[in-house]
């Protein structure tokens, strides 16, 4: 396999005093679907924003297609982002445009294609997500799963080389969830792109991805192929895969001794 499309080396990130990522190193090989997993608030979304150049790492390097993202100027960054697609958690569709205009948005902004061609391209993208019939609807008229599929069509409008998904499975019913999962896999292979999925939905991810990273407390704590993960004896992975309430990730927020707190409270 050639040089991976995305590579993070010893990345550290903090919002002011609050350290989110301590030391992350991972890579996303070309053509593969990689999942990044971790509990809520473990800095997964921040990782995507670092790759997209919306945040800059405090330490370490983020390279995409050989370019150091933090070192890019605005124009170079925007040029790079045209080759990236990001699906936001709730789709982030433009609520004042129809589904059609939403998908056409990146095409109209970045190309000078004639209207007929844009029409054909949009219909192709909508067809790919199975929503060609919904072209004239407004985003408010769509269900959560449909909205996310429209957003997916918009994300792939410019045939990106890298697709990023921020919690694509959150808040979906099992059927929609399965559809989105299959779409992510199919589109990745059809476009010859690479994908990163940030999620905490382990069961769905195990079925569609090629490789998984586990993040906890700002570090990569485990990694491996789905098969390896399923059979892992690592206590953290075991807790995560089998959804146990207590384990290496404690149920209790760090606190003082319980008995002391109770007695002390009474006295």
């Amino acid at each position: 396999m050639s040089e991976p499309l995305v590579r993070l080396e010893n990345v550290r990130f903090a919002y002011g005093e609050r350290t989110i990522l301590r030391d992350i190193s991972l890579s996303i090989p070309r053509g593969q679907v990689v999942a990044i997993m971790g509990g809520s608030g473990s800095g997964k979304t921040t990782l995507l924003r670092l790759i997209g150049g919306q945040e800059r790492a405090v330490g370490g390097r983020v390279t995409v297609d050989g370019q150091d993202v933090a070192g890019l100027g605005r124009d170079a960054l925007y040029a790079l982002r045209r080759r990236m697609g990001m699906l936001f958690q709730f789709g982030a569709l433009f609520t004042d445009m129809t589904v059609f205009d939403n998908v056409a948005f990146p095409l109209r902004e970045h190309t000078d294609l004639p209207p007929e061609l844009i029409n054909d391209l949009v219909m192709m993208k909508l067809h790919a997500v199975g929503l060609r019939g919904a072209a004239r609807l407004m985003p408010g008229e769509l269900s959560g799963g449909m909205a996310r599929r429209v957003a997916l069509a918009r994300t792939i409008a410019l045939d990106p080389m890298l697709l990023m998904y921020d919690e694509p499975f959150t808040g979906l019913d099992p059927i929609s969830l399965g559809i989105i999962g299959q779409l992510i896999r199919r589109l990745n292979d059809a476009l010859g792109a690479s994908s990163v999925i940030v999620t905490h939905d382990i069961q769905e991810s195990l079925q569609i991805v090629d490789y998984i990273y586990f993040i906890s407390e700002g570090r990569v704590v485990a990694e491996g192929t789905p098969d390896a993960i399923r059979n892992s004896t690592d206590p953290f992975v075991h807790q995560f895969v089998h959804a146990e309430a207590d384990g290496p990730v404690p149920f209790h927020y760090p606190a003082g001794d319980y008995a002391t707190a109770l007695v002390g409270g009474a006295g």
């Binding site: 919306q54 982002r81 990236m84 990001m86 709730f90 569709l93 433009f94 609520t95 948005f105």
Partner: peptide
């Protein structure tokens, strides 16, 4: 404000379209 809440501005920025210009 609502466009910001629903991440439309961020999405636009990620599509290499400046929200300030657009």
């Amino acid at each position: 404000g609502l466009m910001k809440v629903t991440e439309q501005l961020k999405a636009m920025d990620m599509m290499a379209v400046s929200p300030i210009a657009r």
